[in-house]
Design a binder for these strands. Structure first.
Lengths: 148, 148
DNA sequence: GTCAATTGAATTGCGCGCAATTTAATTGAT
DNA sequence: ATCAATTAAATTGCGCGCAATTCAATTGAC
């Protein structure tokens, strides 16, 4: 049995997990040329999205929607601080909490980033309705996986 | 402007890239309890899928469908070798090429893995037709991103 | 008020993933 | 036959992501 005609359920290209996995990497690669000029990595960009939505959040507040913990976020946030986009200051009322706020440079960056979603849409080969529909299905799948 | 009611195109939860990104991580996490008993990580499992389909491949042959290069695969394959699932031997006709073959343990592992796809299907909350349809759309998106 | 339990971040260790470089083997033009 | 170009892996350096542990601050039971 050198080959594998009997078990198509194990073929890589049949696995939706791999389709999602490789498409996620394709996204990161496609974002790269847009993010490099902003001195952001893709995960850093996701954090900036959250801060542009709502400035002044704690590490765990940022981590919740991203499904990330301090083990990932602390070094990432230190790099964003080193780049000059955020401040990290201890909460006055609770010294355990680290408050993440945007610097002026971090706020200004939003204007440079605002065109990225539209540029990415072009690269996806889909129209807005298709993106919304597919996004809905993919999110639902992610929720199911986390639940079960 | 503390909040962000004007730029919904930058909201994290509207980004299909993030939906795909986080669902990919949810997949890896959902696979973990099934793969831990096999002493496989999720990326290692993907490599094993390819070897179960076709034994005796080179590093670059394995890398092509996975979109991975030797920088990622070489250490991963060394770990699979250390676990005892694969052999790494230089090609006799071309010493540059590393031939990856399954050990007996690696071949035997297939029988333990064969139930995983069905178990995962349950966790996805979808029927087979939905998985096929969604997988097709996601793969198409990945292809478009790599092309543009 | 004191001390145990909890909470929020930080740290450590390991594996994945990418880019850039290096090394060795092979090919091909001359 | 020789040497430059190409090819396949390996290596190095860096950032992400997860699990487990540690540390400090806070809360709560008594």
């Amino acid at each position: 049995m050198s080959d594998n005609h009997e078990t198509p359920e194990l073929w890589l290209h049949n696995q939706i997990c791999f389709a999602v996995h490789s498409t996620a990497h394709a996204f990161a690669a496609a974002y790269k040329p847009h993010l490099d000029p902003l001195n952001l990595t893709y995960p850093q960009y996701l954090v900036m999205l959250l801060l542009w939505e709502k400035d002044d959040q704690s590490v765990s507040e940022l981590g919740k929607p991203l499904f990330l913990d301090s083990g990932t976020l602390t070094p990432l946030l230190k790099r964003l601080q080193a780049t000059g986009y955020i401040n990290r200051t201890r909460d006055v009322n609770d010294e355990r909490v680290m408050r993440i706020t945007l610097t002026d440079a971090g706020k200004a960056l939003k204007q440079k980033a605002i065109c990225i979603p539209h540029e990415m849409l072009g690269a996806m080969g889909l129209n807005v309705e298709q993106v919304i529909a597919l996004g809905k299905d993919v999110r639902k799948l992610g929720q199911a996986l986390r639940q079960n």
